[in-house]
């Protein structure tokens, strides 16, 4: 169990979210109400399941709130602190950079170094050909794997760069070489 204060906050947020969802979101974003009559027959409508779920969350959160309220006050660190924020800032910076490079590296490389003039081709036409199909996956994958490993270790090492490249090569061998129909990221988007 977490400390009492955090448990109370968790319960309060779930209670509020459950109630708002049941009262506002579900009724206004479903075509039929929980119960409705159609041609003198009574039916369960599309709002029933989400409304029961949202009310269930609210009721359980209320019980949890009461149980947590009755607990003795405990002093403990909360689940999140400044370190959490700092870590996720760095982690998501790496992930976003990796995704941007993964998505755009292939088309940009093709535009810069690909055939030009009458032989010019779109990335969609070239997405299944070597080397274009690997550029995004290799460069984005490398930033992702090597970046996170370096973040976790607090240093950049050549050994880790090599192991990251090796891992990506293994993934290409697993996913791409044996199958003609499988597209590595981001080639399916083009």
């Amino acid at each position: 169990m977490l400390d009492r204060k955090t448990e109370i906050w968790v319960a309060l947020i779930c209670l509020l979210a459950g109630l708002l969802t049941a009262i506002l979101w579900v009724p206004f974003d479903s075509e039929t109400p929980p119960i409705y009559d159609f041609r003198r027959q009574t039916y369960i409508g599309d709002a029933m399941l989400p409304m029961v779920a949202a009310l269930g969350i609210a009721v359980c959160a209320l019980v949890h709130l009461l149980l947590s309220w009755r607990r003795k006050v405990t002093e403990a660190d909360g689940p999140f602190d400044k370190l959490t924020a700092a870590f996720f800032l760095c982690l998501f910076a790496i992930i976003i950079a990796a995704f941007v490079v993964m998505y755009w590296a292939g088309p940009v490389a093709l535009a810069l170094f690909g055939p030009s003039g009458e032989e010019a081709a779109t990335y969609r036409q070239m997405r299944s050909t070597v080397p274009w199909k690997y550029i995004g996956f290799v460069s984005g994958g490398f930033i992702l794997v090597f970046g996170i490993t370096s973040l976790l270790e607090g240093s950049m090492r050549w050994k880790r760069a090599l192991s990251s490249i090796l891992a990506i090569v293994v993934l290409i061998v697993i996913f791409d070489l044996p199958f003609d129909t499988i597209l590595l990221p981001p080639n399916g988007d083009f």
Binding site: Y103, L144, V145, I148, L152, R160, L171, F175, P185, D189
Partner: peptide, 21 residues
Amino acid sequence: VLLPIVLLLTLTAIYVQETDF
């Protein structure tokens, strides 16, 4: 070293199924 590779492996596995970023 292993878990970042697992992350890329999982993302790739998801992508080959959905083929959509």
